[in-house]
Every structure is written in C-alpha cells, then in structure tokens.
Simulated assay, not measured.
Amino acid sequence: VWEADVDGAVNGVSVATAGMYTAAGTKKGGLYLFDRNGATLWKLTLGDNVYDVALSSGGTYLVAGSDDGCIYLYKNSGEQVWKKKINGNIYGVSISDDGSIIAVGKREFEVSAYDLQGNRLWNHKTPEQVLDVDVSPDGSVIVAGCSDGRVYVYDREGNLVWSYNIRMPVNGVSAAIYGSYIAAASDDAYTHILSEKTRAEILKVPSLAKVRGAALTVTGTNLAAASDDGTLKYYALPITYTPAPEATPEVQYPNQPTVPATAASAVLEISSAPSGALAYVDNVYKGTTPVIVTELTAGTHSVTVSLDGYSSYSTQVELSAGRTTSVSASLAPTAKTSPVTVVTVIAAAIGALLIFAVGRRDD
C-alpha cells in the first residue's frame, strides 16, 4: 500500500483503526507518525533506542518505550502529554483502545500499569525479563510475556488472574477483547493460542523459525505472526468468538430502558442484526451491541459496527445535546475463510517500514 524510509532498523510498529495512523520506533531513537497514505506527520528523536510503540484505537494517543528508561505519551499532533522516568530498559508498551490504561514491561523483571495522566496504578515483579506486554482492546486485561516461558494475565487492578507456562521465552503477546484469547509468540517456532475459558493452550500455529511477534484481531479469530525466517503470516484461526456474558444485556434492545441525555450531553443507542457485534464511536470501542453510549458531545460522530464473518457497517451520525439518537446496523454475511495462512510477506528491506495491511485490531 505504501512504503516509508526511516532512520534505521525498526523495533516496533503500531497501526490505528482502519490504518488512520501508523507509528514506528527505531534503534536510533526515532519516533515516527504516518498518516493513512504514508505521509510523515512528524518525527521526533528521543535520544535512545525506541524499543516499542503503541497507538490507541483511533490514534489519539501514542505511547513509546525507550532504552533511556522513559515512557513517553504523545497526542497525534506531536504534542507531548508527559514523559516519565522509570529507569531500566523498557521492552514493551501497550495502550487500551480508549487510552485509559497503559501497560509497560521492563527487562528488569517488572510489569506496570499507568493511567492517562501518568500515575502508576500498580507494579509487579516477575521471575524473569518481561519481553512484551499487551492490553486487551477494552482495557480489562493486561498480558505479559516473559523470558521464563510464562504468560502472565492480570486484571485491570493488577491482580494476577492466571498464568501459563510455554517453557520457552515468550517474545510477543497479544490479547483479544476481554482477554478471551491470548497469542504468545515463542522461541520454539510456534505461536501459542491460549483460551481464557480453559486457561490453557487450545492451538499451536507453527512457523519455520523463532516467532518474534504476534497480533490478534479484536475477536481473536485472526492472527498475524512474524518470525526469524523473514516472513509475516496472517491466519484465520479455527476458533469462534463469543461475546462475554456481561457485555450483552439480558433484556433485548428495544425493551432496554433508555438512558436520558443530560442538557449538556447526547446519548447514542447502537443495535445490530445479528447482535453481539463490536461497536465503536469515533474509533473508540464502546461495547457489544446492543449498547447505550452516554455523555457524548453534540455534533458529528462516526459509528462503526463489526462482527466476525460479517461486513462492517460504518456511518456518520449527528447528535444533539439533551437528546437520544439511535443507530441500527444490518450486517451482511461474508464468505467464510479457510483456517490457513492467507498472506505471506517476505521482509526484503532494512531501514524501511513496509506496510502491506492496515488495522492491527480490526477484523
């Protein structure tokens, strides 16, 4: 789709919803933000190896971790929100879709969480180096992959909920919504798919070399994995996404009590056929349909509804203060994809960022 030259080897890359923005961090300390056409919006030099970057869903915020022992948070305008010195080498960063929680993994055996204001919410020691972290799209689960071969799963408050031993270093992790599925890229040349329901491995996806990174789509039904043989492979996984019980109201949408809008805000009711689809407002995840979104500002907002196996629905809606507006999405089924590799990309350039697909978290 596009190609952009940067100042050296790329350590980390992140893509916002629908490819609106792409961020990259380099070994020479470069931090880049590109628009959907590959134009450089801005470049900063942080002064040391930028090991990982992460964009919030709509690209509003960009977090970066550097070998200078600092976490950086920027707006997509390039304005620095804050810089926090935490000492040590930061190997992984991640941010929830709404930007409300940021996860950090350190070589010095630590995993931490911060809020949007830069306040540390919690910090835990791990037995070995934290090689990567990920926050589930809804922000409810934080996952850490460590050099001791374990995947550690924490809730938003920092409680260790469960862990799983792969027995080989975990180079990359990715969590689907609600932490329902977790992908762990490992030195054993496999990407291990773990299920929250069983808290165990349910699938191993083979590669020809050590797997360095993995990324699941929102529902966990698709996987991208990058390995040392120079390939990036995209898979349709033979698993089924089921919305979390607490995410779908027991009372069906038309009979659900309407939340009144206050005089200064607007309310948006989003439904779909079938229900249980992922709903986004202004590229920020708001829940599964049917869902009521409150405290919105008056004016034009974008609405996107998506469900695995169906075409996505997108529209613009005009909201008025003190009023409730409804959006109903009729989703059309798409052709089923066979659970095999559908894309293979051979990495052929050093010092260049190649973008072949967009939407890291989009199904």
Rank of each mutant, 00 (worst) to 15 (best):
S302A: 13
A298K: 06
A236M: 00
P243G: 05
A226P: 05
P254H: 11
K286E: 07
A226F: 10
D229M: 04
K210F: 11
P254W: 08
A224H: 10
V284H: 07
Y234I: 09
V205F: 03
S272F: 07
P249Q: 12
A214K: 10
L208H: 14
P238H: 06
T242D: 03
P257K: 09
A264S: 12
A224Y: 10
Y253C: 12
G299M: 07
S227A: 15
A263D: 10
V218E: 01
A209M: 13
L216H: 05
V303P: 00
T262S: 14
S275R: 03
T289M: 05
D228N: 15
S265R: 06
G220M: 04
A215F: 05
V205C: 04
A236D: 00
T217D: 07
Q252L: 14
L232F: 10
T297H: 08
V281I: 01
K204W: 11
A215S: 13
A225F: 04
Q256L: 13
P245G: 01
V218H: 09
N222P: 00
T240F: 00
I292A: 09
P206F: 07
L223K: 00
E295F: 07
T221D: 02
E269Q: 13
V251R: 06
R212V: 12
P206G: 09
L223F: 00
L232H: 10
H301V: 08
S207D: 11
P257N: 08
V259M: 08
V211T: 14
A224W: 12
K233C: 12
I292V: 15
A209V: 09
I270P: 07
V211A: 08
Q252W: 14
L268T: 01
S265N: 13
A261N: 04
E250C: 10
I239W: 00
S271R: 11
V281Q: 01
S227W: 07
T217M: 02
E250T: 14
